[in-house]
């Protein structure tokens, strides 16, 4: 007889936050609509009831002020969890993120630390257009000084949040809206998972092989993990055995896991919902090419958003965003096969 408790991504995040708040009085939460509303994407549901207004603080729409305040509070001995409602809104507050949070440890010669979690919603697929649908993994991963994680499922959402809160570095925790298990937004089947009730931490920089295969490596993160798995199922019917790697964190990046897989398969497809140019897809391919270009039996392929603002209209948005079919087609190209 077993308890097979299944949590949505959002419930898993909340559980991790609540468990850390119970044991560590320095942990507190602030952001827009994190109080009675429980977070626009349900990342703080129920926390106000348990921990009260001092530790779960609704803020004005003043990201420069409250993210800057998060930096200051973190340097003063607290462990703030600050929510930036949509990652797209970084435009109004980036200075506090990349010039303060990301640099203060270094510029203090390691004498100051900024143990802040900045959690933020990413992703499109529901016609919210380009000011509310971006993924922007690379925008943050590009800038030194922040750790950047992006879970693909509830189990990882809890374990990575626990690690993020306990880490002494600023951690950007990027959760995809479409993986939260929100009643009002469709989510892929595998996003909600069984989640242990006891606290646990998932170390950063450890990718996970979510499907083993010998013919081709598909590297994915966040939402594209689900697209990659669906593509792998379809490819299996074509007789192609794909390995799928969920990176789970961008910084630190588990390059070794990618290399180990490519050594086995010799073929590589990288899928990311972020923009194509100057992004994660290029970084992964460069990592392989720099190490040993001879590992690849065919040209690697990437599946990402073309370099356009994410359009509103459904047919155009579907054209722009990665999906299983695009990954499948890319895999077929690495096998030098025409797409059926």
């Amino acid at each position: 007889m077993s308890r097979n408790r299944v949590l949505t991504g959002s419930r898993a995040m909340v559980e991790a936050i609540a468990q850390e708040m119970r044991v560590d009085p320095t942990v507190f939460v602030m952001g827009e609509d994190v109080g009675p509303y429980g977070g626009i994407f349900s990342s703080t549901t129920g926390l106000l009831d348990e921990f009260g207004e001092e530790r779960v603080r609704d803020t004005p729409i003043s990201e420069t002020a409250f993210i800057g305040a998060g930096v200051g509070a973190a340097m003063a001995g607290m462990r703030p969890i600050v929510e930036l409602m949509f990652v797209d809104f970084f435009g109004v507050c980036m200075d506090a993120i990349y010039n303060l949070a990301a640099k203060n440890t270094y510029f203090s010669g390691g004498n100051s630390k900024v143990p802040m979690v900045l959690m933020t919603a990413t992703g499109g697929g529901y016609s919210d257009a380009g000011q509310h649908s971006q993924t922007l993994h690379a925008t943050f991963a590009h800038l030194p000084g922040m750790k950047v994680v992006a879970p693909s499922n509830a189990y990882d959402a809890k374990g990575l949040m626990t690690s993020a809160i306990r880490d002494d570095a600023p951690v950007l925790y990027m959760f995809h809206k479409g993986l939260q298990g929100l009643a009002w937004m469709a989510a892929p089947e595998g996003a909600s998972t069984e989640v242990p009730e006891d606290p646990y931490a998932i170390p950063f920089g450890e990718a996970r092989v979510v499907r083993e295969g010998g013919d081709v490596t598909i590297v994915a993160i966040s939402m594209t993990v689900h697209h990659a798995l669906a593509a792998a199922e379809a490819l299996a019917k074509d007789g192609v055995d794909a390995e799928v790697i969920d990176l789970r964190s961008l910084v630190p990046l588990d390059r070794e896991a990618v290399l180990a897989s490519v050594r086995k398969t010799g073929r590589l497809v990288v899928a990311d919902e972020d923009y194509r140019s100057f992004g994660l897809t290029a970084e992964i391919i460069a990592s392989v090419a720099e190490t040993d270009p001879g590992l690849l039996k065919s040209a690697p392929r990437r599946v990402a958003c073309p370099d356009i603002p994410i359009p509103y209209s459904r047919p155009m948005e579907r054209f722009a965003l990665p999906d299983a079919e695009k990954i499948r087609a890319a895999v077929q190209q690495t096998l030098n096969r025409a797409v059926a």
């Binding site: 257009a129 000011q131 603002p309 359009p311 509103y312």
Partner: peptide
């Protein structure tokens, strides 16, 4: 649409 559907309700 004003933008051929690229912008939508907020744009």
């Amino acid at each position: 649409g004003l933008a051929g559907g690229r912008g939508g309700h907020m744009h």
